[in-house]
Amino acid sequence: MELDTTVPSQPDAALQSEIAGLIVTALNLEIAPSEIDPEAPLYGDGLGIDSIDILEIALVVSKQYGVQLKADSADNTRIFASLRALTAHIAAHRTK
C-alpha cells in the first residue's frame, strides 16, 4: 500500500505551525502564523517574501533545528515551494 504523503502526520503539523511562527517573527510579518496557507508558495505574491527573507529564514532554521539549507540541484525552489515543503525538508534533516 502506498502512503499518502500529502497529509502531514501529527508531529509535522505541530512543527509546521512552529515554523510558521518563526517565519512571522523573523520577517516581522503583520499576520498571524495560522494565516500562512501551508500549500501556497512562500516566494512572490502570497507573503511577499524575497531572497533577502529566504536568507533570514535559512538562518533561523539553522539555529533552531540545526538544518543548513543548501541550494544544491536547485532544491531552493522546491524547499520554499510552500510552508509544507519547508516543514517536510526540516523534519527530514533536523539535528535538534
Binding site: 531572497s51 536568507l55 539553522s62 543548501k70
Partner: peptide, 10 residues
Amino acid sequence: VPFFPADIAD
C-alpha cells in the same frame, strides 16, 4: 553562484 552560508563555505 552560492547563496546559503553552507554553499558559500563549500
